[in-house]
Every structure is written in C-alpha cells, then in structure tokens.
Amino acid sequence: MIPYDFILERLYPLELRHKKMFGIDAFYYKEKIVFCLREKESNNDDNGVWIATKIDFHESLKEQIKDLRMIKMYPIKSWILLPADSDYFEEGVETIATLIKQNSPYVGVIPKPKKKKKKNTTK
C-alpha cells in the first residue's frame, strides 16, 4: 500500500513510474526522480513527502511550502521533507503536484547512472 496516495490523484494524468527504494515508495516523472513517500513506525519524524531537489532550491521551496525541513535520519543534503504531521501537509502536497506538472526545475533530479559491474575474467 502506498502512503499519502492522494498526491498521485493530484498528478493525474502524468505517467509516473513507481519503484521501491530503501523500503519507501519512489516516483519518477520522465527521466527524473521527483519524490518519495514514507510512512513507517521507526523514525516517524521523517514520514511524509521527500522532495527530490537541489540545495540551491531549498530556500525558494521553503517560501512556497510551509514546514519544509531536512530529513533527520539520513544526511541527504539535497532532498527536503514535507513532514506528514505538518498542519500544511495537504496544502504542501498541492504545491508539489503543481510544480511537477509545470515541470519546475525546483522538483526533480536526474539520477546518476548505475555503474556497470565488471565481468569476472579470471579462469
């Protein structure tokens, strides 16, 4: 079950790709990872919408979405969190969805390509 799945309704008809990543639900739009949804009992301070972005955009996003903060459990500097317990959670989700639909540079990061494994050539 995907937590906070109402964000997916807000993003209709965009074709998002869903992937499990470290036990959370990651979503991609075109070539970018745009957000992750997390709802777990452990470290529940970090439950909510994890927004894929760049550090340069944090202040601009904080001006548009109340209560954004850094993720506590992982030292990920570029991602930013809209906590599920925020009084502005639904309002923030609306703004995130709008930014994604507008293809805003503030939301979404092109993941680094995976390194290819070397073939074992020893006999």
Rank of each mutant, 00 (worst) to 15 (best):
M1T: 07
I2N: 13
I2S: 14
P3L: 03
Y4V: 09
F6M: 07
F6T: 12
F6R: 11
I7K: 06
L8N: 05
E9G: 09
E9A: 08
E9S: 10
R10K: 12
R10Q: 08
L11P: 05
P13M: 00
L16F: 07
H18R: 14
K20N: 09
M21H: 14
F22R: 02
G23F: 10
G23L: 03
I24G: 08
I24T: 14
I24Q: 12
D25C: 12
A26W: 08
A26Y: 10
A26F: 12
F27A: 00
F27D: 00
F27C: 00
Y28S: 15
Y29D: 03
Y29V: 03
K30E: 11
K30M: 13
E31Q: 05
K32F: 14
I33F: 06
I33G: 03
C36Q: 14
C36F: 12
L37R: 02
E39A: 12
K40W: 13
K40F: 09
E41C: 12
S42C: 14
S42K: 13
S42Y: 15
N43E: 10
N43L: 14
N44S: 15
N44A: 10
N44Q: 06
D45F: 13
D46F: 04
D46G: 04
D46K: 06
D46Y: 02
D46N: 14
N47C: 10
V49R: 08
V49K: 01
V49G: 02
W50G: 09
W50S: 12
I51P: 06
I51T: 10
A52Y: 08
T53E: 08
I55A: 13
H58G: 04
H58S: 04
E59G: 04
S60W: 06
S60E: 13
L61M: 03
K62V: 12
E63F: 05
E63R: 10
I65P: 02
K66A: 02
D67Y: 03
D67F: 03
R69Y: 05
R69L: 03
M70K: 15
M70T: 07
I71Q: 00
I71F: 06
K72A: 11
K72Q: 11
M73K: 11
Y74F: 15
Y74M: 08
I76Q: 11
I76Y: 07
S78W: 09
S78A: 14
W79C: 07
W79H: 12
W79D: 13
L81K: 04
L82A: 04
P83T: 06
A84S: 09
D85S: 05
D85T: 01
D85V: 04
S86Y: 07
D87K: 09
Y88E: 03
E91D: 08
E91W: 01
G92T: 00
G92N: 01
V93W: 02
V93I: 06
E94I: 01
E94F: 07
T95F: 00
T95Y: 01
I96T: 01
I96Y: 01
I96C: 02
L99F: 03
K101N: 03
K101R: 11
Q102L: 09
N103Q: 06
P105K: 13
V109D: 10
V109I: 11
V109F: 10
I110F: 14
I110P: 02
I110A: 03
I110C: 07
P111E: 00
P111L: 00
K112F: 15
P113F: 05
K114W: 11
K115H: 09
K115Q: 09
K115C: 14
K116V: 03
K116C: 01
K117Q: 08
K119T: 12
K119E: 09
N120G: 11
N120I: 12
T121M: 15
T122F: 02
K123D: 11
